[in-house]
């Protein structure tokens, strides 16, 4: 009989303790970010999709060695280059990133020895069409420089 009432009492007390916790939380400020109206800045090391790095002349640093293409686990990268007459280095003519397959592992950036690739800070990517995620990075570079 004593345990019966003890159980009821301790049970009730535990319920009130729980209610006290939520009561206190009620008056604390909100912690969420109102996404479309407020956005967060991404940290320095954030990995968005890859982006080409340009040199001083606004041309990509890439020398079309193809290491990133080989390092990629999912074969997202297609690149091509030509060697213009009288030049030593190849010039990048095409750099397509198939972001639908990319898993942002960073193998391409790591494998690059010429400081030609970096992660962007882009995280607002949404589309209903698959083609929107096949990025022409060379085009994006030109757009940025405009």
């Amino acid at each position: 009989m004593v345990t019966y009432f003890k159980d009821i009492y301790s049970g009730l007390v535990s319920l009130f303790i729980g209610m006290e916790v939520t009561f206190k939380e009620f008056f604390k400020p909100t912690v969420t970010v109102q996404y479309p109206y407020e956005t967060l800045t991404m940290t320095e090391k954030y990995r968005g999709h890859v982006e080409l790095i340009e040199n001083d002349e606004g041309k990509p640093n890439c020398i079309v060695c193809g290491l990133c293409q080989r390092a990629c686990p999912s074969a997202c990268i297609t690149l091509a280059g030509v060697k213009p007459e009288g030049e030593k280095k190849k010039v990048l003519t095409k750099y397509i990133l198939d972001f639908t397959r990319c898993s942002l592992c960073g193998s391409c950036v790591e494998s690059c020895n010429f400081n030609a690739l970096e992660f962007s800070k882009e995280y607002n990517l949404a589309s209903t069409r698959r083609e929107d995620f096949i990025f022409d990075l060379l085009q994006r570079l030109e757009d940025r420089n405009k």
């Binding site: 940290t43 320095e44 090391k45 954030y46 990995r47 942002l104 592992c105 960073g106 790591e110 992660f119």
Partner: peptide, 20 residues
């Protein structure tokens, strides 16, 4: 995220060490 660059599916460890 500040270290590894991603929030859930980290690709942070490398054979022999770390990415960052």
């Amino acid at each position: 995220e500040a270290v590894t660059g991603s929030r859930l599916t980290y690709c942070y460890f490398r054979f022999g060490g770390l990415y960052n």
